[in-house]
Deep mutational scan, measured.
Amino acid sequence: GIPATNLSRVAGLEKQLAIELKVKQGAENMIQTYSNGSTKDRKLLLTAQQMLQDSKTKIDIIRMQLRRALQ
């Protein structure tokens, strides 16, 4: 079985993952909103794209940590 310490770690990672998935969803929504907007929305679009990139990276890292914890 999986050690108890790993189980609480997994629960924490799953919570983090859920949050990051919401951030990713929000960033994707912002990108959709701003991509057909005016030029003043360009900065917001770039910010949203950066957020999305960061979020995807975090999600990958969390998933990797989850896999390790579940081994």
Rank of each mutant, 00 (worst) to 15 (best):
D54G: 05
G12Y: 15
A4N: 14
I61W: 06
Q50H: 05
Q16T: 03
K43F: 10
Q71P: 03
Q53P: 00
K15C: 14
A18K: 09
L52P: 00
A69V: 10
M51I: 08
M30W: 04
Q65Y: 07
Q25Y: 05
A18T: 06
A11R: 11
R42K: 07
K22W: 05
L70R: 07
K22D: 05
L46T: 04
S38V: 08
S55G: 02
A69L: 15
K56I: 13
G12R: 15
L17Y: 02
Q50S: 07
A11S: 05
P3H: 12
Q53D: 08
A69C: 08
R42P: 13
A4Y: 03
A11D: 11
D41M: 03
K40Q: 12
E14N: 10
K58R: 09
T57F: 06
N6C: 15
L44S: 04
R42M: 13
N29A: 12
S38W: 04
V23M: 06
E20I: 09
M51F: 04
L52K: 02
S38T: 14
G12D: 14
Q50C: 11
M51A: 08
D54R: 13
M51E: 06
Q50R: 14
A48Q: 01
N29I: 13
L66W: 01
Q53M: 09
L13F: 03
M51W: 04
R68H: 15
L46N: 07
Q50M: 06
N6F: 04
R63C: 14
K58T: 02
K43Q: 10
G26S: 12
Q32G: 04
M30E: 03
N36S: 14
S38G: 10
K58F: 02
I61K: 08
I61V: 08
I31W: 02
Y34N: 02
S55Y: 01
N6R: 05
Q50L: 09
V23E: 02
L52F: 05
Q32T: 07
K43C: 13
R63Y: 15
L46I: 12
M51V: 07
Y34C: 05
Q49Y: 15
T47F: 07
L70Y: 08
S8C: 15
D41E: 04
G37N: 12
N36P: 04
E14G: 04
N36C: 14
L46A: 11
N36H: 12
S55T: 10
L21C: 13
Q49W: 13
R63E: 09
Q49A: 05
K40T: 06
Q50F: 04
V23K: 13
A18M: 10
A4G: 12
Q65M: 11
D41V: 03
L7S: 12
L7D: 14
Q25P: 00
T33Y: 08
V10K: 04
N29Y: 08
Y34V: 03
A18E: 06
L70C: 10
G12N: 13
R42T: 12
L13K: 01
S38D: 14
D60P: 01
S8R: 06
V10I: 15
N36D: 07
D54C: 11
G26K: 15
N6I: 15
N6T: 11
Q16S: 07
K43L: 10
Y34A: 05
R42W: 14
S55D: 00
G26A: 09
A4E: 14
V23T: 05
Q25E: 14
T47V: 09
Q32S: 12
N6P: 10
K22I: 08
T39F: 09
K58M: 04
G1W: 10
T39N: 05
E14M: 15
L17E: 00
A18H: 05
G12H: 15
A48H: 02
Q25D: 05
E28T: 03
T5E: 13
L66S: 00
K24W: 06
A18R: 10
A4R: 05
G37Q: 07
Q50K: 11
